Amino acid sequence: MLTKIFTIALVASASAFVPAQHARVPTKLNFEYGEYDGKLYDHVAKTALYNKWDPNSPRSTRNFNPFETYKSNSPDASGIYPGEPRYKDPVRGDVSFAIMMAEKADNEARAANPKAGDVPGCPGCKN
């Protein structure tokens, strides 16, 4: 008798963990990742994305400034920041002091000559 009660209690408690069946479960999310998703996302790739970026068009996974920071974070290869849904850690390139100094010079030159329309609050910016 005690075994039957124990078995019934075990089955009843296990059924609490079975997911409910819903009539309308989405099978595919409609989300497009960026051009460099799953590929090497180094300074060369970021520069290529920056050259294609249009600050006057709405921000998307294919139109974003890869050098823009938000809350001190850089975006992934799809323009998504850490902590946001669908963020994927990008495939990063090699790093050395010499590479970092060359990238720093390039970043300073780009900051000195921003694209037309690149102002805080523009449609293509996060900030």
Rank of each mutant, 00 (worst) to 15 (best):
K28Q: 14
D76V: 07
P58K: 15
E68D: 02
N63R: 10
N30H: 13
A45Y: 06
K39P: 01
M1P: 14
I80N: 00
A105P: 03
F64R: 01
A112H: 05
I80D: 00
D118V: 13
D54G: 03
T69A: 10
Y33E: 07
V11F: 15
P58E: 14
A98T: 08
P82W: 09
I99G: 09
M101E: 15
R62K: 14
L29Q: 11
G93F: 01
P55R: 00
V91G: 05
H22V: 11
V11T: 12
N56I: 00
N113E: 09
G117K: 04
R86N: 13
K28W: 07
K115M: 09
E103I: 03
S74L: 15
A20K: 10
V95N: 15
R110A: 05
P120D: 09
Y87W: 13
D106H: 06
A77C: 05
T47Y: 08
I99K: 15
D54T: 00
T3G: 03
R24W: 10
H43D: 14
G38H: 06
F64S: 02
C122Y: 04
P120E: 07
Y70F: 14
N65S: 03
S13Y: 11
A109K: 15
R110I: 15
A12R: 01
V119I: 05
F31Y: 15
R86D: 08
N107D: 11
Y41I: 02
F6S: 09
I80E: 00
R110S: 03
K104F: 13
C125Q: 11
K104W: 11
I5N: 06
K52F: 06
K71V: 02
F6Q: 10
R24M: 09
H43S: 14
Y87L: 04
Y36L: 08
F64A: 04
D94W: 13
R110L: 15
C125V: 02
P82M: 01
E68I: 01
P58Q: 13
S78K: 07
A48R: 01
A109E: 12
G124E: 06
F64Y: 11
G93W: 01
A105Y: 03
N51H: 13
N30L: 12
C122Q: 04
Y41Q: 04
A105T: 08
D54M: 02
D76Y: 04
I5P: 04
Y50W: 13
L29C: 08
V18N: 01
K28F: 11
S74T: 14
T47V: 12
L40S: 04
A102E: 14
A77T: 08
P66H: 07
G38E: 09
L40Y: 01
V119T: 07
G83A: 06
R62V: 09
R110W: 07
V119Q: 00
P123C: 05
S72Y: 02
N56P: 05
Y70S: 09
I80Y: 04
A48M: 12
H43P: 00
R24D: 14
V119E: 00
R110N: 02
K126F: 10
S13E: 08
D94H: 14
N65T: 04
